[in-house]
Each structure stands twice: as structure tokens, then as C-alpha cells.
Computed example of a mutant assay.
Amino acid sequence: MTAPGTRTAAGSRSHTYAPAERKARRRSAAFGLLAWIVGIVFCVPALWMLLTSFHSETDAATNPPSIGAPLTLAGYKVFFGAGGGQSPWPSLINSLTASVVSTLFVLVLALPAAYALSIKRVEKWTDVMFFFLSTKMLPVVAGLLPIYLFAKNTGMLDNIWLLVILYTSMNLPIAVWMMQSFLADVPVSIIEAAQVDGARLATVLTRVVAPIAAPGIAATSLICFIFSWNELLFSRVLTGVRAQTAPVFLTGFVTSQGLFLAQLCAASVVVSLPVLAAGFAAQDKLVQGLSLGAVK
């Protein structure tokens, strides 16, 4: 029994911890507010592009911009070829074909390579990883002329399969680096148990490793798809009419004659939709996949 006016040990500890807890709550609230501000800042340009795409060219070109201007679908009608303009569908199909096929090729090649570098590690595997990384050190424009001459001499100019090969080679090092860290978290005991049961390498990769590393594979696929879909330099130089991709078609709205801002925003919104749809569909696995290689 304590005398009046004395402070117990528990009361002293609670009195000591209370300011620290309040400070931690204030710090957490400040970081949360900062995250909201940063998110809004990043979203404002995209929302502004969406709003401008529904304005007329005269309203979109006003300075300062007119937020409450009347809405119209004129920009989207021009993009989809209304009034005799060029149809965007061949370019969109070319981009979709090059992005999806190259991503599939990357996964087929990167999965066994990452398996050899993470689970069944080859000799001097760190040197191999550095070699993959060194392939991204050369600027893309530095290899443009040799690739153009090769495509010209082999008759591959304006061919969608040339872009598939290029996108596969460009994204493969990134995919191997990502999947190597993802597959490093796969339990070796499960693989050994499957091998004891007589499973071959192809079976182990497709039925054991792939399901466990599915979030990481989804994250890698999405990133490779985005890089392929957004690529402009190679597609601009190596394609013409038949293999023209969506980013190249998009640049056709930039002109020195007349106003083009609303039409360009409408085209940008449509071209961005496949990437946004893919990211939204794979958002759960993307978050899981990006956290697989984290330090625990």
C-alpha cells in the first residue's frame, strides 16, 4: 500500500511513455499527410490530361487553362479516325502484339536463367549477373545505327517481329535480375521433394517454381509489358506504316499547324488505357511480387 502523493512504478512508466506515443502519432500523421500530397501531385497531370481531352482545341489552348469549359468528344472522334483520318487500330494492335509476345518470350527465357542463378547456382553466378546488368549500360541510341543497317540488309524494316526481338533482348536482363531475387525465396526442400518424386526440370519450373513465384512473375511481366508498350525510339526509326506502334501514331498529333493539345490528350488517354488496365488487373500480385525480394 502506497502513501498518498507517491507515484507507482507503472504510473511513472505510463507518464514517461505518453509523450513518446503522442510524438509517434504526430510523426505518423505527418508522413501520411506528406504521402497524400505527393500522390495528389503525381495524379494532377494525369487528371489534367483527362480533363483537357474532353475540351475543344480553343478551350484547351487558353492561358490560363479554362477548367469549366464545355465538354466535348471531338478529340476522341479525331483519334478514332472520324472525318477520314487514319485509324488507330492497326497501331494499337501492333503495340499489343509486340508487347505481349515479347513479354512471353522474356518469361520463357528468364525463368530458367533465374532458376540457375538463384536455386541451382552456376559457377561465378555473380559475374553472370553483372554481365546482364552491363548490357543496360550502353545507351539505346548508340546501337541504333547498327540495328538499322542489319534490319535494312535483312529486309526486316517495318516488320513487327523485329520489334518483338528487340523488346525481348531489351527486357531480358531486367527480368532475370528481378526473377532471380524472387526465386531466391522459393524453398529448396519443395524442389528437392519434387525431384525425388521423379519430376524433371521442365516440370519443376512449371508446376513447382512458377506457382510459388507467381506474384514475382506477374510483377516482372507487367514491367516488361509497360517498357515494351512505351518504347518509341526503335519503333520510330525501324517501322513505317505496317508495323507502326501506338507511341509512333501518337506523335502524329503534334503538328506545327493549328491547335492539337486536346487531340493529343485524347490520344494519350486511349494509348495509356492498356497499361492502366494491366496494372489494375495485376495490382494484388504486383504488390506481393515487389515485396518477395525484400529483406526480412
Rank of each mutant, 00 (worst) to 15 (best):
T2P: 12
A3V: 09
A3H: 12
T6N: 08
R7S: 10
R7Q: 09
A10Q: 10
H15E: 14
A18G: 04
P19W: 07
A20N: 02
E21G: 11
S28C: 01
A30T: 09
V41G: 02
C43R: 03
L50Y: 01
S56G: 15
S56P: 03
T58R: 14
D59M: 03
A60N: 08
N63G: 01
P64R: 02
T72S: 06
A74W: 03
A74P: 08
G75C: 01
Y76M: 08
A82W: 15
G84K: 04
G84I: 00
G85Y: 14
Q86S: 01
P88H: 08
S91E: 02
L92G: 12
S95Y: 08
A98K: 13
A98G: 07
V100W: 06
V108Y: 09
V108T: 14
V108M: 08
L111I: 15
L111A: 13
P112M: 09
P112H: 13
P112S: 13
A114P: 08
Y115P: 04
L117Y: 07
I119G: 12
I119N: 13
K120F: 13
R121E: 05
V122Q: 08
M129D: 09
F132V: 10
T135E: 06
L138Y: 06
P146M: 11
T154I: 04
D158W: 13
W161D: 00
Y167T: 10
T168I: 04
S169H: 08
S169P: 02
P173L: 09
I174A: 05
A175I: 03
A184P: 05
V186P: 05
V188G: 00
S189R: 01
A194K: 05
Q195P: 06
G198M: 06
G198V: 01
T203G: 04
T206K: 07
R207Y: 02
V209E: 01
A210T: 15
A213D: 00
A213F: 06
L222K: 00
C224A: 15
I226N: 01
N230P: 11
E231Q: 11
G240A: 15
G240K: 13
A243Y: 04
A243D: 10
T245H: 14
A246E: 11
P247S: 14
V248D: 08
F249A: 00
F253G: 02
T255K: 08
L259C: 00
V269Q: 05
V270L: 11
V270H: 07
V271Y: 00
V271C: 06
S272D: 14
P274G: 07
G279I: 00
G279T: 03
Q283V: 11
L286P: 01
V287E: 06
V287T: 12
S291A: 09
S291E: 09
V295C: 02
K296A: 03
